[in-house]
Structures are given as structure tokens and as C-alpha cells.
């Protein structure tokens, strides 16, 4: 198992590694295939954005136009005027941030416990944690719903975060990162200086975890913000929908008309795309690091 530091040093040469030189025609074929794929990935999104600026009657006009003419903001205006979109937005963002904060903290603590301590029952506890990765959400959907509703906790600000606060995936990711990048000596030194166990974690370990915490935070935020099944069974008041649920109900209520929901889809995607683009390096490397070196 390589340490994080020497991976960084050797990444550049490795990146250019792989199979030897490639013929000119091979190169052309590769670039055209990848570019075609790029278009397949981007085209649906461009079409959605374009449609969101078209008047209702033009969305299915033939021949299809990529640039809307006339372009209009009516879909956005009507959506925001007739639907409690900003309520949906607020509840989606705030509950996602709450869930993310709790999850990141819980995972960092447990990841540290597993990475840097020996204790009785460690193997079993780790195995139990890890095996929860293979529990399908559909299994706990019904009982979780009953527990939450029966215990009077169906307030969406609380209930929406419940499935996302203790992700085993995050603990695994943290544990891997701590094993690889935080030397025991730093922790020993803090202990000799008389720091308490929690003080060591808070002042010494946590700051060093920042890149990995960022990746986990982005990932958890996406999971919670984009979640659909749990809000679907939980929420019944239109003013307290999350964005995904609001868009779904609106689409069905409007007899599958696309004008408002396309505007909503674009607005809904702005925060996640922005967060992703800003933190893409951290996220992609953080996600793959645990699996590759695990």
C-alpha cells in the first residue's frame, strides 16, 4: 500500500504511462469517440436549458430549434409566482447542509477511532459497519417511516435528514484516508503534550483531514439534496416539499407539461453543478482514493 505523499509525487509520470505510443489514426478515432460521447452527455442538458426558455407552445415545435426564438423568461416567472419554489429550495438546501454536517462529523470521529486505535471488538464492529453498505434502503423505508411518524418526528426539518446522518461509506473513506496520511507520531506528540483524546482529534487530526472531509461533504450533500424516495413517502404539505418532490408533483399535476418543470430543473441543478465544479478535484480524488488503496 503506497502512502498518499508518494502517490502525489509519482502521479505525473504514471498518468502519461499506460500503453506505448499510438498511431495517428488511432488517435483520431480515440478523440472522435470521446468527443461524440461528450456530446451525448452534454446534449440532453443543453436541450433542457434551451427548452426552459421557450414559450409553452414552442417546446415541441418542429423543426426543433436549439436557440429559442422568441426566448422568454415566462417559465421561470410563472414557476416562481405560482409555486412555493423558494420554500422547496430552502428546505432542500438547509436539510442537506444539516445532514452533511452531522454525517461528516460522525464519520470523521468513527474513521479516526477505527484508524488509530486497537480495541476489543474492533473487527466485529468494523464488519458490522461495513456490511450496512449492503442494506437496501427499500428494506428500512416502511419501518423508518412508521418509526418517524409514530414518534412524532415527522417534522420535515428533522425527518428528512434521518437516512443520511450515518453513512458507512463515509467512515470507510475517512478510515482509509487517516491510515494513509496521518502518521502516528503526530498523535503521540499531542498526547505527550498533555492533550486530551478529543482535543487531539479536534486540534490535530481534524485540520489534516480537510481535503477528505471536503470530498465527503460534497458527496453527502448531493445524496441528500437529490434524494427522492424518502421525501416522496414523508412529505405531504406542498409548502414543505423538497425540490425533487415538488418538481415531480408539479409535472404530474400539470398533465406532463414541460414549461414550468424545465425551468425548475435548471434552477434545481444550479447549486449542485456549482458545488461540483468548484470542488470537483477534491471530490473525484477523494471518492476514488479509498477504493483504490483499500
Amino acid at each position: 500500500m503506497s502512502t498518499r505523499a508518494d502517490t502525489r509525487k509519482t502521479r505525473e509520470p504514471l498518468r502519461r504511462g499506460g500503453r506505448g505510443g499510438m498511431s495517428r489514426s488511432g488517435r483520431i478515432a480515440l478523440y472522435s469517440t470521446l468527443t461524440l460521447l461528450l456530446l451525448i452527455f452534454v446534449a440532453p442538458l443543453v436541450w433542457a436549458i434551451s427548452s426552459s426558455f421557450k414559450p409553452r407552445g414552442d417546446i415541441f415545435e418542429y423543426p426543433p430549434k436549439l436557440i429559442p426564438s422568441p426566448a422568454t423568461l415566462d417559465n421561470y416567472r410563472t414557476l416562481l409566482d405560482t409555486q412555493p419554489f423558494w420554500n422547496w429550495f430552502a428546505i432542500s438546501v438547509v436539510t442537506a447542509l444539516l445532514a452533511t454536517t452531522v454525517a461528516v462529523f460522525v464519520c470523521a470521529l468513527a474513521g479516526y477511532g477505527f484508524a488509530k486505535f486497537r480495541f476489543a471488538g474492533k473487527r466485529v464492529l468494523f464488519g458490522v459497519m461495513f456490511s450496512s453498505l449492503s442494506v437496501p434502503f427499500a428494506v428500512i423505508l416502511v419501518p423508518l417511516f412508521i418509526l418517524v411518524v409514530k414518534s412524532g418526528l415527522s417534522n420535515p426539518w428533522f425527518a428528512l435528514i434521518v437516512p443520511w446522518v450515518a453513512p458507512a461509506f463515509g467512515i470507510f473513506m475517512m478510515q482509509q484516508y487517516i491510515v494513509q496520511s496521518i502518521p502516528d507520531e503526530i498523535i503521540e506528540a499531542a498526547r505527550i503534550d498533555g492533550s486530551s483524546e478529543f482535543g487531539t482529534f479536534w486540534r490535530v487530526v481534524l485540520p489534516l483531514l480537510r481535503p477528505s472531509l471536503g470530498a465527503l461533504a460534497v458527496w453527502q450533500f448531493l445524496q441528500s439534496y437529490n434524494a427522492f424516495m424518502w421525501p416522496l413517502v414523508l412529505l405531504s404539505d406542498v409548502n414543505q416539499y423538497t425540490i425533487p418532490l415538488g418538481l415531480n408533483i408539479l409535472f404530474r399535476a400539470e398533465n406532463r407539461s414541460y414549461d414550468l418543470v424545465m425551468a425548475g430543473a435548471v434552477l434545481a441543478s444550479v447549486p449542485t453543478i456549482l458545488v461540483f465544479l468548484l470542488l470537483r478535484k477534491q471530490l473525484l480524488e477523494g471518492l476514488s482514493a479509498g477504493a483504490v488503496k483499500g
Binding site: 452527455f41 448531493l222 418532490l245 434545481a268 441543478s269
Partner: peptide, 11 residues
């Protein structure tokens, strides 16, 4: 290629 994973399934 990663972008679809960032989007909401409803979108």
C-alpha cells in the same frame, strides 16, 4: 462524464 451523478434523478 461525472455530471449525471450530480444531477437529481427527477431532473
Amino acid at each position: 462524464f461525472f455530471v449525471p451523478m450530480v444531477l437529481s434523478p427527477i431532473v
